[in-house]
Design a protein around this nucleic acid. Structure first.
Length: 291
DNA sequence: CGCGTTTGACCAGCGC
DNA sequence: GCGCTGGTCAAACGCG
């Protein structure tokens, strides 16, 4: 329904701006969505209120936010470039007695407080959706929730369920516009999307590269650029999300990966979805037939 | 039983 | 130094 999502992301490090992502932006331009320029000062007034939660913590310059294009398809993104040196290093073998273990470790091995906690590149998306946790093809496990200052809505913290993947994401609603969900991804997946192991990936022609991104897909990409994950896979899923989205279904929930999915009972009359081929491209035919 | 969520506590960084 | 806030941990709990 109100799921007009959009993505805008930017790469703060202009030099490292990956083509794919920039192309994404360009693609958006194609369908009327203004492309936000990277590097805009975060003081941009048009930034959605939700950014307030993102902005304040601008500890490092790299964090920049874009102004939303439209109220409906606004999105932002941010990124901090440096690679994080998380506490992962305390591999030691975290067995039981974690609390004590941690304390002991901290005492014995004080954190490198000297160096600021560096983070993975972050990408924020503002999505107009009724569901907070947008399906993006990966499985997430919620590991925390915090009340957000100046916002009645809590912020949820998710982590990729893949133990080898350190991608995280935060999900929160805009305090001013509850219909807008701000999703911030941090890090990059080091594995393919679980969904893509399903037959779905084998259906339809191979998806085009980023450059050939389907217009009606580019507007919704609740996932940051992938490095290890084949981009076409991501796109594939994006299509999927868009379709569901356009069909008027929630495009995801916390457990969408494990919960039964719903599909359009009938091919949506939506102009964006008249292309049945595209639908088949991302939705298993068997599923479609079922309906 | 395995997996995911909830929730309170804890910690680190930042601003005053 | 202190308080605030964001971020994370992990035990408890719920669900299929």
């Amino acid at each position: 329904m109100s799921n007009s999502c959009s993505l805008i992301t930017e790469l703060l490090d202009e030099k490292s701006s990956s083509l794919g992502f920039m192309e994404l932006l360009n693609t958006q331009d194609v369908f009327g969505t203004s492309v936000l320029q990277a590097g805009k000062p975060s003081t941009e007034p048009s930034i959605h209120p939700a950014d307030q939660d993102l902005k304040p913590r601008v500890r490092q310059p790299p964090e920049v936010f874009n102004a939303p294009a439209t109220p409906n398809t606004s999105s932002i993104s941010s990124e901090s470039n440096d690679h994080e040196q998380t506490k992962e290093e305390e591999d030691g073998g975290g067995g039981g007695g974690r609390v004590e273990n941690q304390k002991i470790k901290k005492m014995l091995k004080p954190k490198k407080t000297s160096q600021k906690r560096e983070r993975e590149p972050r990408f924020a998306f503002m999505t107009k959706s009724q569901v907070e946790h947008l399906e993006d093809g990966y499985r997430w496990r919620k590991y925390g929730q915090k009340a957000v200052k100046n916002s009645p809505f809590p912020r949820s913290y998710y982590r990729c369920t893949n133990s080898l993947c350190n991608v995280k994401k935060r999900v929160e609603r805009s305090s001013n516009d509850p219909s807008i969900v701000v999703t911030t991804y941090e890090g990059q997946h080091t594995h393919p999307s679980p969904h893509l192991h399903r037959p779905i990936a084998a259906i339809g022609p191979p998806p085009p590269p980023y450059s050939g991104f389907s217009p009606n897909c580019a507007a919704t990409l609740p996932s940051p650029p992938q490095t290890a994950v084949p981009s076409h896979n991501q796109q594939h899923f994006v299509n999927y999300s868009v379709l569901l989205n356009s069909c008027g279904y929630d495009i995801g929930s916390t457990n969408t990966a494990t919960q039964p999915r719903r599909f359009c009972s009938k091919p949506s009359p939506s102009p964006l979805l008249t292309d049945r081929g595209l639908l088949e491209d991302v939705v298993p035919r068997s599923v479609i037939k079922e309906e």
